[in-house]
Amino acid sequence: MTDPTSSLVLDLVEWVAARPRTYAEVMEAWRTSCPRLTVWEDALDGGLLIRTALPGAPPGVAVTRAGFDALARAGRSPLAPARRPMSRAAASA
């Protein structure tokens, strides 16, 4: 596992912190087929994000206290508009 506070992992945590996200939305934006790019897995393994399940709601993703602490240590504000990941269509253009 890479450092759980790497720049891309913090980008993901910051993006999730900006507003409630469904698991499907996070997977669509952040999933990768590259085995060397493990942003989602690193965020989970580092305890920065958790999957959530509420009755009647789609599965979600939330930032943990450790995730908010990591953002603060990096000088990132979870209240600031997070950078939106590039869509796959834009990335392949």
Rank of each mutant, 00 (worst) to 15 (best):
P35M: 06
P81E: 04
S7K: 10
A80Q: 13
Y23L: 13
P55K: 08
S87F: 02
R36M: 12
D45L: 13
D45K: 13
V39Y: 06
Y23C: 05
L79H: 15
L12C: 01
V26L: 14
R76D: 05
R31S: 14
P35S: 09
G47H: 03
A24Q: 07
L37F: 12
W15E: 00
A74M: 07
A29K: 04
R19K: 11
R31N: 12
R88T: 05
L79M: 15
E41I: 12
A72I: 13
R84Q: 11
S77Q: 05
E28W: 11
P20S: 07
R83S: 08
G47S: 02
V26S: 04
R31Q: 11
M86R: 14
P58Q: 06
V16S: 02
R65Q: 15
A91M: 02
L44A: 02
L10D: 00
E25L: 06
L12M: 03
R76Q: 09
C34L: 09
T5N: 05
L49C: 06
A89G: 11
L48T: 07
A66M: 08
R21D: 00
A29S: 09
A93C: 10
R84T: 08
R83A: 12
V26C: 10
L48D: 06
E41S: 15
A17W: 02
T38K: 14
D3Y: 01
M27L: 14
R65C: 11
P85H: 08
A29R: 10
T32L: 10
T2C: 03
T5W: 00
L37H: 12
R88M: 04
C34D: 14
F68A: 10
S33M: 08
L49I: 04
P81W: 10
L71H: 11
A18P: 00
A43N: 08
V26M: 15
A57M: 13
P35A: 07
I50Q: 08
Y23E: 11
W40F: 14
R83I: 03
L54Q: 14
A93K: 01
A80E: 14
A57K: 15
A90V: 06
P59Y: 01
W40V: 13
A80R: 14
P81T: 06
A89N: 07
P20W: 01
L49N: 08
L44M: 08
L79I: 13
R65Y: 13
A43T: 09
A66G: 08
V26A: 09
L49Q: 04
A80F: 12
L12G: 00
M1G: 12
E28D: 13
E14V: 00
P55N: 06
M1A: 11
A74I: 05
A57R: 15
P58V: 03
E14L: 06
V16R: 01
A93R: 07
